[in-house]
Design a protein around this nucleic acid. Sequence first.
RNA 1: GCGGGCGUAGUUCAAUGGUAGAACACUAGCCUUCCAAGCUAGUUAUGCCGGUUCGAUCCCGGUCGCCCGCUCCA
Length: 500
Amino acid sequence: MPIDMKDIVSLCKRRGFIFPASDIYGGLNGFWDYGPLGTELKNNLRDRWWKDMVTTPPIGPDGAPVQIVGLDSSIIQNPKTWVASGHVGGFSDPMVDCKETKKRYRQDHLVVLTAEKADRWPAFHEETEDDEILKRLKKLGMPSDLSLFEKTNLTKLPIEDYAKIIGPDVKEPGTLTEPKEFNLMFETYTGAIQSEDSKAYLRPETAQGIFLNFKNVLDSSRVKVPFGIAQIGKAFRNEVTPRNFIFRSREFEQMEMEWFCHGGEAKMWQDFWLEERANFWKAVGLSDGNIIIRGHDADELAHYAKEGLGTSDIEYKFPFTDPGYGELEGIAHRCDFDLKAHEEHSGQKLAYLDPSRDNERYIPHVIEPAAGLTRGVLALICEAYTVDENRPSGVYLNFTPAMAPKKAAILPLIGKDEHVPIATKLYLELREEFPVDLDIKQNIGKRYARQDEIGTPYCFTIDNDTIADGTVTVRERNTMAQERISLDKVAEYLREKMKV
RNA sequence: GCGGGCGUAGUUCAAUGGUAGAACACUAGCCUUCCAAGCUAGUUAUGCCGGUUCGAUCCCGGUCGCCCGCUCCA
């Protein structure tokens, strides 16, 4: 039975994983807030990534651990950053829409045949051949004589003239909308006075902050190429169409690592990181069958990856993409595009002097595993969501113990007996090490059901036997099976399970 | 951005041009020695703005949000 996203969205809200942002004002398209449990879940995924990248990075192909250092750069950088990176300019072209055909044109790609006396001015794509223009003039019942008209680029015409313009694919004038700016970057202003000079941008990717600090890290951290710089943080894109819950939102969180290496070794490192990253997603609980690795076709490559080895995605089969897949992480070969661009625009030397290669001086190539943290959270939730009509809750979240927001619940079997003090003591002890819940109210079945719904893997129940022989019941979420273990072994038991 | 659908409690759903109901959740109490989310009670809703009307949750317009398709997606 296919999972309905509606059920997941409502569970997320009902249990405090994810809320619509500014909910009491009716929400805001493309923004979401993480509730108490969603925050724990996101932090768990984030911390695991940081550990795998920075604290205990993998063993490299040569048998030695690779070197990766962390960074936390500013969300707002000098706006020249985004000129150099290609984000300003590339996607800020004004577009006009045709109200009739719903087609969209770049304003500067259209030329208009203007004439003082005419009240209908046909527009054409700038590359349209003259003989085709003549044909169309005939169809429109206009004199087929180009000398009567002047070719004017649409950008040169005032908006008042648009009423006279006949769009490239229609017969009547007045269907073109006024030009709209189409920039995916959020704009803001630094300082209290707003002007063009103080315009700045919220970063559309965390990567550039890493490139900006390449030299600083190199000069301060005793790293040698090949090495990596890792960063986790918010990024912002004014998506045309935010869709699919938190999958495409306008504010999201990335986990990016830029791996700097010699151009000749780029292929080896891209293969290496692709495998490492796929293993990561499996380790946090995504099943083999729901993950796919897909190479980008040439025509979908980003501007920075046009040359070189291209990009491979790690994709997940979300309920809303099924039977297809949605991107979770891209492992791109960014070549030396970014450092070179920043060298040109900043005038700073960013080449690396490599003593291990006879002091060869070169701009390192970059392999970039760039993952969506918030997309990862969604994948974890979708993967964990399990319908089970044989249990009171009807559904449970099958998180791995390591990812689960709550690792265990401590439940006194009877709420007002001497079970409560023992449970409280255990709770106080366990919470030093793990996020755990103490739940006293209502009968035991309700409490198990509640924990199932938020994906708590273990419940420890204190009963009369605990008083008699110092044992507690462990109830396992997926199987609902119970076993008894010694009260003083509970912490160790949990510690053991967290490793899985 | 376009087209279509939908907005009633925390969630899932009822109903009505004139007092808005239920289930579950939540809170309190009871009961309970392990799935009994059992019993009792209680809190909580017509997205927002405007129009028509004596009266609008219902009809109309706008707006915001969600879903589906297209478009877009550095």
